[in-house]
């Protein structure tokens, strides 16, 4: 059974609310747990980096095309 500290209980969280959170939420749903434990970073492989950059260049190029279309449209 979980322990409720006196000071914490005094802050206004009732025993019912405490029990409710404990039983209804999964461990990694608790906000403070999520704040303290983030997903570890992963290293991208060379191939993944190439795909990431290719799509980034594609996006920049295509936005240029949109700007060109607007420019010709306005003219």
């Amino acid at each position: 059974m979980a322990e409720i500290s006196d000071s914490a209980a005094g802050d206004g969280v009732s025993r019912e609310e405490f029990t409710s959170v404990m039983t209804a939420l999964e461990p990694d749903q608790i906000v403070s747990a999520k704040e303290h434990h983030h997903c570890p970073r992963r290293d991208l492989t060379g191939r993944e980096k190439v795909v990431f950059w290719a799509l980034r260049i594609y996006l920049i190029f295509m936005v240029g095309v949109v700007v060109y279309q607007i420019w010709t449209g306005v003219r």
Binding site: M1, S5, S7, G12, V13, E26
Partner: peptide, 13 residues
């Protein structure tokens, strides 16, 4: 924010 400390162990379902 209301604070309450407890052991993560007890959260296991």
């Amino acid at each position: 924010i209301f604070f309450l400390t407890f052991l993560v162990k007890s959260m296991k379902e």
